[in-house]
């Protein structure tokens, strides 16, 4: 991949970045009295173009989804190399795969849960699985399908579908990233793995499962050794904070663990994790030649939508603004 090929795409991304919602607009949205008011404000932003799709006024998901799809399409057009955009589509692929395998295993119809943003033709994959012919499926995905199906045959536990696919998704993601050879991407992926591992650690402790289960669900290839998590298995949260004090991600991890300790909510942990990762990816602002700004833009857009969803859901449920503010993620701009 020649970094100079991205010159045009980077400049286009810079212009698009200006259209991301500003802090001021988000504040206005938070302070908006009602859902209608919020929607009115949103209509005057870049999201306005998706409003024509709206059938029922309160169904903001339609708009968010249309906008997400649009952002991906724009970036497909902007990026000279599809692997960058597909890297971020991967998440949706695995989501769809999860839904598909649940459909097959439980023999139910979940078709409303599909997110048609991924790269895979999920219908086709369904036919392949039903015909028991996986030859034309992308090897990592084929391996994933096989693993899930064999695991289910042995354990008969549909819960494990999600766990397995989440893990394989991260490995697949990392594999693509390693091929791109961007230090920023690798740092991003490794930080993400570390965070997920810490989250797994506290989740397993909370669910009172055993050490063997932890060993199975921990991800490898992060910056922090798997051993270290296993050693921390019996420690209290305070001790865990001390254990990971000197890690690279400590700047985000410690506040994450502390707010988890205070509220006992995983959302608060995840908020700090998102903040750390978006701060990390802000480095892309200083890169003029390379795929990073395109990657960062899509992440920024996803973060923006996460924030919008928090705001709009709270409008629907009449949650006061100060509560919403606490849950907001930092934005890229």
């Amino acid at each position: 991949m020649d970094r100079l090929d991205f010159t045009q795409g980077v400049v286009r991304t810079r212009v698009l970045e200006k259209k991301l919602l500003t802090f001021g607009t988000l504040e206005r949205l938070i302070d908006a009295g009602t859902m209608d008011e919020a929607m009115k404000i949103l209509k005057e932003t870049d999201y306005g173009s998706s409003f024509s799709l709206l059938t029922e006024n309160n169904d903001f998901e339609t708009i968010l989804f249309a906008e997400l799809k649009r952002s991906f399409q724009i970036m497909d057009d902007v990026s000279p190399d599809s692997s960058i955009v597909n890297l971020l589509r991967l998440k949706y692929d695995y989501h769809n795969l999860k839904v598909l395998l649940k459909e097959i295993i439980l023999d139910k119809d979940f078709s409303h849960l599909y997110l048609p943003i991924g790269t895979m033709d999920i219908k086709q994959i369904k036919t392949f699985i039903l015909n028991e012919n996986l030859q034309d499926v992308d090897p990592p995905v084929r391996a994933a399908i096989v693993e899930v199906l064999t695991d289910y045959k042995i354990t008969r536990d549909p819960q494990r579908i999600g766990i397995i696919l989440d893990r394989l998704y991260i490995y697949h993601f990392l594999k693509i990233i390693e091929a791109i050879k961007s230090p920023l991407f690798i740092e991003y992926a490794k930080a993400m793995i570390d965070f997920i591992n810490v989250r797994t650690l506290i989740r397993v402790k909370r669910q009172k499962k055993d050490r063997k289960f932890l060993e199975e669900v921990l991800l490898s290839k992060g910056n922090i050794e798997k051993e270290k998590f296993l050693h921390s298995f019996t420690d209290s949260i305070d001790q865990i904070i001390r254990n990971f004090r000197n890690e690279k991600i400590a700047k985000g991890l410690i506040p994450a663990l502390q707010s988890y300790k205070e509220t006992n909510r995983f959302e608060d942990f995840e908020k700090e994790m998102d903040n750390y990762l978006i701060k990390l990816i802000r480095e892309a602002k200083h890169i003029h030649f390379g795929p990073e700004p395109i990657f960062a833009y899509l992440l920024a857009k996803e973060t923006e939508m996460k924030n919008l969803r928090i705001i709009l859901v709270s409008k629907a449920n009449e949650i006061p603004p100060q509560m919403v503010r606490k849950r907001m993620r930092e934005s890229y701009v």
Binding site: L4, T7, Q8, G9, V10, V11, R12, V15, L16, V78
Partner: peptide
Amino acid sequence: GLVGEATSGLMIEE
């Protein structure tokens, strides 16, 4: 050429 690529990216948007 390099700058041209960058500027044509800008022209698409602005």
